[in-house]
Amino acid sequence: MNTTTMNPTVTAPADWRDFLALTKPRVLSLVVFTGLCGMLAAPASIHPVLGFTAILCITLGAGAAGALNQWYEADIDAKMKRTANRPLPAGRMDRQAALHFGVGLATFSVLLMGLAVNLLAAAILTVSILFYVLVYTVWLKRRTPQNIVIGGAAGAFPPLIGWAAATGHVDMLPVLLFTIVFLWTPPHFWALSLFVRTDYANAGVPMLPVVAGTKTTRTQVLLYTLPMVAAAVAPWPMGLTGAIYGVAAVALSGLFLLLSARVAFNRETDQAKMKPERQLFAYSIVYLFVLFGALVADRLVLA
């Protein structure tokens, strides 16, 4: 990135809505939810105040990562229709303000987690922020079509953080939750990138559909769905969850697999007509919410 590139002239001071937009609220909601589910599924109780503090720290840390991502990628965002109206490319905020906001949120979230909750949760939170900003945003995003594959780990940390906040350690179940989100990320984002690939091409981002084409991307969507389904179902036969989660995982993952297969065998090249890809992208968000919700319901029943 050319760090000397300036944003459009800032015509007025940014307001609270611009700072909120920096945190990527839509992404944030899923991150916070999986972190909360990781905490509630843990076999240990946590004081409500500490639990609230832990979720607040996850929220602030994820928001900080989103803000720093937008600070670094302001030039890319300006070239994409989907992101052109974000505060920085739209000229509603100065880059320096976004940088200070992101660094401040990150520092505060980690310090508060370490002082109020425990050091392990704070350490994992630190790794998640640094991974998203340095590994995904700075290193991978502009260099390789594997950016989503490796970078997907950044969004998979919240269940680990929630579990560690409640228990002070990490077990097999949160590792599997991490694995589910990690393997879910490529089909989720590749489904999106298939019907917005022109945006990525115009911005010079080497997303898989841009570099390898739609046929290869569709195949990869299905190939990554297979281990994701296995990871999602695995906690049930391993005895880590009960039937509520198990049945939900089988049903939800079966539908995910069906939608992925429809994407894999689709031959439509017109982005505006890529219905299977849009359906998979929309369902993938619902999938993760309901799957993790079923995990919590299962834990509450077993308790």
Results as ranks from 00 to 15, higher is better:
257 L>D: 01
15 D>M: 05
181 V>T: 10
50 L>E: 10
108 F>H: 12
301 V>P: 10
16 W>H: 12
110 V>S: 05
246 G>Y: 03
120 L>R: 06
35 G>Q: 00
78 A>V: 02
58 I>D: 04
203 A>I: 04
198 T>E: 12
13 P>E: 04
184 W>C: 05
27 V>Q: 05
174 P>E: 00
85 N>C: 12
195 F>M: 09
162 G>T: 12
271 Q>P: 11
75 D>K: 11
162 G>V: 13
200 Y>L: 02
4 T>P: 06
29 S>E: 08
155 G>I: 03
151 G>S: 10
86 R>L: 08
223 L>Q: 09
81 K>Q: 15
84 A>G: 11
64 A>I: 04
111 L>Y: 10
81 K>H: 15
53 T>H: 02
153 A>L: 14
13 P>G: 12
303 A>P: 11
137 T>Y: 09
180 I>M: 14
85 N>S: 15
230 A>S: 02
299 R>D: 03
73 E>L: 01
113 M>T: 02
183 L>W: 15
145 P>F: 01
229 V>M: 05
229 V>K: 03
288 L>S: 14
262 R>H: 15
81 K>S: 15
221 V>K: 04
58 I>Q: 01
89 P>I: 05
273 K>L: 12
97 A>M: 14
156 A>N: 04
164 A>D: 05
136 Y>K: 00
211 V>P: 02
110 V>F: 11
113 M>V: 01
219 T>N: 14
199 D>W: 05
171 D>R: 11
149 V>Q: 11
89 P>S: 11
301 V>I: 15
54 A>W: 02
